[in-house]
Design a protein around this nucleic acid. Structure first.
Lengths: 242, 242
DNA sequence: TTGTCGTCGACTGCCTACAGCATACATTCC
DNA sequence: GGAATGTATGCTGTAGGCAGTCGACGACAA
């Protein structure tokens, strides 16, 4: 249905099918079309995406590696169900990783990088003032990514981005809760990095991410979890069964 | 060849084929039969393992998620090439993660867990005295795993085990470099956890893992890297040709 | 009514086969 | 002699299909 593949024109396939399938499924998970705990039936996805089961299967394998879906051998793939506890732990780990990133970034700051950071920060603040939530969220993750990359530790960067992507999943609904203050913290962080003050940079980052964690938990307390249901759900009502 | 698949008896398959394939390939990587940078031709693996390409492909996808192999779309899978730099970064991240684990473990120590730790520690020391390297290495990872699990943060535990497995890959050749001293540090760590002294526990763990890192780097300096070769290597010499 | 067993349906896991692509070698042209 | 192009080949990516397995539903008996 929503497949652009199979069209007559020989559209250059920019990437493999399984990758575009992966992106599509991931998007469906993030925006919530595929709900936590939901059983991902390969045939359905394949039909909806206009491909065969094979690329779907492979995309699911890859997604399981990033924690988005759980594979139950013999049962299939299920959208990972984020519990409050896990979200909290995830946010704690993110704090740990990003704090270290900030420290390392401050250890040997780079003029160009600093300049980039300030640009992003300004954009974010502007978006925040303009009440453009999407742009603010985008700038936010962009900035954090930039800091992590400045750490110079690729392993750390990879791990962090992996964790951060999942955090963002939980985080999105509460993104608007922290506006201006968040960007002031960012600005202070950049100052510390530029000054090469490891401890200050680390401290700011720690408090900053802890802040996020707190506001997440509070927001979660107000809007309690919607669904731990759908543990198995197989076989729809079934038709007449002639 | 070594396939038990396809045999007439309906042997209860304890797990899916792709999982056993995954384990087998991982083992081949760890013991070095499959060398870093080597191109993993699906057909070869499938033939050697006595299965079809499909489970091999899926196993490779899963392995890529854990960082053991690199997938190059359109080119296939290659055994991940561990550079010295990456190993160093990996060890740094491990230090970070395990230090936090130790801190959390000390935050609310559990009688039973402590007792388990001591058992493991004693076994490790005994193995060390008896010069049983394999047993010592096993006890070592067992102890670290136990500490991480005591942290109570599953996300942290998962991430750490993932990193630790890869660390162990690089680490094995130098495992013998640190013997007795390592186990004394372990004992001190357990004491600190039992006493509930977060800072001390964290500090011991940090120094402990940093020690490992240092000895790794030194050992690596003496035995320089063997292979960054085999970047592409396709198509064997080919027979007489016509 | 409740517990147990048999049957049915659906989905996954795996295999085979084909098409497209990328690389290496051989040939031809300058 | 060197470079560009044609050709061959191995590999990956994808499709389709079949069998095994798991869960659910319904029937039967206590």
């Amino acid at each position: 249905m929503l497949a652009n593949q199979g069209s007559t024109a020989k559209i250059v396939r920019p990437t493999t099918l399984r990758e575009s399938v992966l992106e599509r499924i991931l998007e469906l998970i993030i925006i919530g079309s595929l709900k936590p705990g939901q059983h991902l039936v390969e045939n359905e996805l394949a039909d909806n995406l206009g491909v065969s089961r094979q690329p779907v299967r492979e995309a699911l394998q890859l997604l399981s590696g990033e924690g988005w879906v759980d594979l139950r051998p013999g049962h299939g793939a299920y959208v990972h169900s984020p519990t409050v506890e896990e979200a909290d732990q995830l946010l704690a780990v993110r704090t740990l990783l990003e704090t270290e990133s900030a420290r390392l970034a401050a250890r040997n700051p780079d003029k160009t990088d600093i300049s980039d950071l300030r640009d992003i920060c300004n954009r974010g603040l502007a978006a925040c003032v303009a009440d453009d939530v999407d742009a603010a969220v985008a700038a936010n993750s962009e900035l954090h990514t930039a800091v992590v990359n400045m750490s110079g530790n690729r392993v750390l960067a990879d791990l962090t981005s992996q964790v951060a992507r999942r955090v963002r999943w939980y985080h999105t609904p509460v993104a608007r809760h922290r506006g201006r203050a968040s960007w002031e913290e960012h600005a202070a962080l950049i100052d510390a990095i530029e000054a090469g003050d490891e401890d200050v940079a680390a401290d700011i980052m720690r408090r900053h991410t802890e802040h996020t964690r707190q506001s997440y938990l509070e927001s979660r307390a107000q809007h309690p979890v919607e669904e731990p249901p759908a543990p198995i759900r197989r076989r729809r009502p079934r038709a007449v069964s002639g």
